[in-house]
Simulated scan of single mutants.
Amino acid sequence: MPHTAHIPSHRKPRRRSASAMALRAGVAGGVLSTIAVAGAAGPANADPVTETIEMPTINPEGLSQTIAHSAQTQQQAVFDQQLDTLEETAAKKAAKDAKAAKAEAVREAEAAKAAEKKREREAAERASRTADRTSLTAPAGNNSGGGSSSNSQTPSGSVGTVIAFLKAQVGDAYVMGATGPNSWDCSSLVQAAFRQVNIDLPRVSQAQSTVGREVGTSNLQVGDILYWGAKGNAYHTGVYIGGGQYLDAANPAKGVVIQDLSGYPATGAVRVL
């Protein structure tokens, strides 16, 4: 124990100044006066307030998230609607394209089928003409006994060779200026037919109407050359084949055909066989 512990302190107690004490007394008096006035002003029998109103607490961060979520939901709905529209449009276009493709495929198939039938028909016709040409074994020569106007049978000899050649060309096309073997005009066909028996005829109709002997149209024989138009200025020729019929390369619509002379009477006829 320090040797100074038993010695009482010589510090003098601090004295408060008169002004400080007066200030504290004034403050205390004012507070008491305010309490007294408040008690006197209130009703003696007033009930105490027992209801407490609580204001909602607003969380700015939560509000921002709610707004963002709502905007995202609306944006997703718009996107879904646009996607549905695009899918519907694409489906309609695909269906339309498929229908058009099917129609085109059917058209192409029908065209291919028609072309195949045409090729088969032309091949059969060529084979028939080839067979007819191969069968032309009659010797060439000047034979005027070709037959009468009432006989449609193919004659023998030179006239028979000419008629057989002409009939083998039935079905060929008419093409102006063509000279065979599968397309002709009227005068080239007549010229080629008589060349089979070594008779060289002029190339054009006008000149063909002037060769040989004029026989008219009332005493025709098989193998006579028919012409339409004025003699020396004819515009068409053919060959009489008997039975009131003639064979010619008629026009682009008909091609090489056999026709009745009564339907298109000739102007005149000449005989070279």
Rank of each mutant, 00 (worst) to 15 (best):
R213L: 04
L23D: 15
A105Q: 11
A46P: 10
S19K: 14
V170A: 11
S187P: 01
K113Y: 14
G30V: 11
G147S: 06
D185Q: 06
T154L: 10
I58L: 13
L166M: 13
M1P: 09
S150L: 08
S152M: 07
I199Y: 01
A230L: 10
R24S: 11
A115M: 08
D47T: 09
V175D: 02
A68K: 09
P43M: 05
G157W: 11
K99V: 02
S9F: 07
T237I: 12
G160K: 00
A40M: 12
G238H: 01
M21T: 14
A100S: 13
L166T: 02
Q74V: 10
G160D: 00
G263R: 13
A123Y: 04
K167G: 01
Q82Y: 03
P8Y: 09
N198K: 13
N59S: 15
S188R: 05
T217R: 05
R121F: 13
T50A: 04
P181D: 01
G177C: 12
A101W: 01
A193G: 08
A94M: 09
G157Y: 12
G141K: 13
A168E: 01
S17G: 15
A68V: 06
T66E: 13
A5F: 12
N151D: 15
S19P: 04
V49C: 05
L32K: 03
V256Q: 00
G238N: 05
A112W: 06
G255T: 06
L201F: 05
Q221Y: 13
E108W: 04
L261C: 11
V272M: 06
G243F: 02
L220Y: 05
A100V: 13
A25P: 05
M21V: 15
A101V: 02
Q169Y: 03
G263Y: 12
P155E: 10
V170G: 05
A101H: 07
N142L: 12
N45I: 05
E51A: 12
H236T: 05
I258E: 08
Q65N: 13
D248L: 03
G29F: 05
A138N: 04
V27L: 14
T57I: 11
H10T: 08
Q221M: 15
A114W: 10
K231G: 10
K118N: 14
L226M: 13
T134N: 14
C186M: 10
D97P: 00
G243H: 02
I199Q: 04
G268T: 12
N233S: 15
G263I: 10
A41H: 12
N59P: 01
W184T: 02
S205R: 01
A38Q: 09
A131C: 06
S209Y: 07
I163M: 07
E104Q: 14
L201T: 09
S144L: 09
G229K: 06
P155H: 12
A90W: 04
A124R: 13
E122K: 08
A249D: 07
Q206C: 04
G242T: 11
K93Y: 06
L86H: 06
C186R: 03
N151T: 11
A77H: 09
S148F: 09
L201I: 08
G30Q: 07
T4P: 01
E110C: 03
Y174H: 10
V106R: 00
D80H: 12
Q169S: 04
L166S: 03
A266C: 06
M176V: 09
